[in-house]
């Protein structure tokens, strides 16, 4: 006794296959929308911004008049910020990762730190701004200087670096550690001479990606007091500053419509710098991945 009517099954077949084909096209279009958006954004910003992007723009301070505004203070300010963020976050991040991967016992405390990091990664960046405002600007009375901004950004991207460093430390084969211990090396000798050198490409790649996130951040800097208009360059980490995204934001908010072109030019500069950073990350990844 057949419970299945073969004819019905065959009759339905072509409809099901058609559905599958239609679905594939829909899924494809959905995927392409992101690409189209990216294309529109790039086209729009290039056509608007290239006209304003000249040497005067790169070497000038911002101005009330759109045709004289420049991004110099922003670029230099962002570089100063990174000079604080990069070492702080790399050292603390990598140390945390080494501790968690190589030293910590798999216990409650380790799990607690892990979960804590996971949650920190999900805290909105503006809340880090509130943290920086209270702790650095008011409690430690740093005022609105590069150090406060750089440290705030450093705390913000700390989870990113820790996770990247953990992953690359974890991917170092255990045989290497055993070989080192087998020759009587101590734990720290093994970590410093074997594990870290093998993990460094992954750590650097993660570090650069974290920095490129920090360079594009706006909201926390608004809170810890990056200036929107500034006409001197910081000469140290205790000076007031501005940053590229802050300048772009203030141009976007400016009343004269011509500032739209200035903002576009600023975005081009910011995106080019991000692109450079990312290319370096990709370069490091490719160069070292062949060796392992």
């Amino acid at each position: 006794m057949a419970l299945i009517n073969k004819d019905t099954v065959s009759n339905k077949m072509s409809g099901r296959i058609l559905k599958n084909k239609i679905a594939k096209v829909i899924f494809f279009i959905a995927t392409i929308i992101g690409l189209l958006f990216l294309g529109a954004l790039a086209y729009r910003i290039l056509t608007q911004g290239l006209g304003s992007l000249d040497m005067d723009f790169l070497t000038g301070f911002t101005s009330q008049s759109p045709d004289r505004a420049g991004i110099k203070a922003g670029v230099i300010g962002s570089l100063w910020l990174m000079s604080v963020t990069a070492p702080v976050t790399l050292i603390i991040g990598v140390a945390t990762a080494i501790y968690l991967e190589e030293y910590a016992k798999r216990g409650r405390f380790t799990r607690f730190i892990q979960i804590n990091l996971q949650n920190l990664a999900g805290v909105p960046s503006i809340v880090f701004g509130l943290l920086g405002l209270t702790i650095f600007v008011y409690i430690f009375k740093t005022g609105e200087i590069v150090l406060a901004g750089g440290l705030t950004l450093g705390l913000l991207v700390l989870p990113v670096i820790v996770v990247a460093a953990q992953e690359s430390i974890r991917s170092v084969p255990n045989e290497l550690r055993e070989a080192s211990y087998g020759m009587g090396a101590t734990k720290w000798q093994t970590v410093r001479r074997i594990v870290l050198p093998a993990a460094i490409p992954g750590i650097l790649t993660g570090g650069i990606l974290a920095l490129s996130r920090a360079i594009g951040e706006t909201a926390p800097l608004l809170l810890v007091g990056a200036a929107t208009a500034i006409f001197t360059l910081p000469s140290g980490i205790f000076d007031p500053y501005t940053a590229m995204p802050i300048q772009i934001y203030s141009w976007t908010k400016a009343p004269q419509p011509e500032f739209e072109y200035v903002a576009s030019a600023g975005i081009i500069v910011l995106l080019v710098i991000l692109l450079l950073l990312n290319s370096i990350a990709v370069f490091i990844r490719n160069k070292f991945s062949k060796r392992l």
Partner: peptide
């Protein structure tokens, strides 16, 4: 060497604890 072996984990632990301090800082501030 022995001294370093004892010191390093403590330094690393301090760094790892910092992320917890950040959370505490956020909670305290807010």
């Amino acid at each position: 060497t022995a001294f370093v072996e004892k010191l390093v984990p403590k330094l690393l632990l301090m760094c790892a604890t910092l992320s917890v301090l950040v959370t505490i800082g956020i909670l305290y501030t807010l």
